[in-house]
Simulated assay, not measured.
Amino acid sequence: MKKQRIYFILFFVMIAWGFNVTATKVLVENFMPVTMTALRIFVSGMSVFFILFIMKKVRLLTKKEFIYVFFGGLFNVVAHQYYLSTGLTQTTATNGGLILGLGPLLTAILSVIFLGSVLTSVRVAGIVMGIAGVSIIVFQGSGGIDGVSVGDVYIFISILAQAASFILIKKVSETLDPRLMTGYMLIMGAVILFFISLFKEPEGIASMANDSVGLWVVFFASAIIATAIGHMLYNGAIGKVGAAEASMFLNLNPFFALVGAAIFLGENIEVVHILGFILILFGVVLGSGAFEEIYRKVKRKQNMPIAK
Rank of each mutant, 00 (worst) to 15 (best):
F53I: 04
A228C: 02
F255R: 12
M304L: 11
G72P: 03
F75Y: 05
G126Y: 07
Y68H: 11
G133S: 10
V285Y: 14
G289N: 03
Y295I: 04
A38W: 00
F156I: 01
M55S: 06
Y184N: 02
F75I: 00
M188G: 13
M208D: 12
E293P: 05
I15Y: 00
L275D: 14
G97Q: 03
K297M: 14
F31K: 07
N20Y: 04
L106A: 06
A243E: 14
F277E: 14
Y7H: 15
I6F: 02
Y184G: 00
G45F: 03
I294M: 14
T120V: 07
G204Y: 06
V271N: 09
V124D: 09
S212F: 14
K170L: 06
G18Q: 05
A226M: 05
L52K: 00
K64C: 09
S111K: 00
G266E: 08
R179W: 01
V122A: 13
F199K: 12
L193K: 05
L60A: 06
N251G: 15
G103P: 03
E201I: 05
I294P: 06
M304W: 08
L258M: 15
S165Q: 06
R59M: 09
V112M: 13
I159W: 08
E29I: 06
T120S: 13
V284F: 01
L252W: 08
I196C: 09
R5S: 04
N95F: 03
F139Y: 06
V26H: 06
V69E: 15
F282I: 10
P33R: 03
N235M: 10
L250T: 11
F277C: 13
L168G: 05
S247P: 09
V34K: 07
G189I: 10
L275R: 07
L198V: 12
T227A: 01
I6D: 00
P202Y: 05
Q162F: 03
S111H: 00
F31M: 11
F75L: 15
I196K: 15
L252V: 13
M55H: 09
A262E: 13
F256I: 12
N268D: 10
M14I: 08
V122R: 03
L168R: 04
A38V: 06
F19V: 12
G266D: 07
S197M: 09
M185G: 04
F42A: 15
S135P: 09
N20F: 03
F53L: 11
L52H: 01
A163E: 01
V241L: 15
R40W: 00
G147D: 11
T227D: 03
G189E: 07
N95P: 09
L27Y: 09
A257T: 00
Y7M: 02
V118A: 13
M208S: 09
A79T: 01
H273S: 15
F194L: 14
N30Y: 08
G18D: 02
K170C: 05
N20L: 08
L119D: 11
V150D: 06
R40H: 12
Y7T: 07
I145T: 14
Q90D: 13
I187K: 00
R5C: 02
A226W: 00
K170R: 14
S44Y: 02
D146I: 10
F49D: 00
A164L: 04
Y234T: 06
K301S: 12
L110S: 06
P178L: 11
G87L: 11
H231W: 01
R5E: 04
V259N: 11
I238R: 12
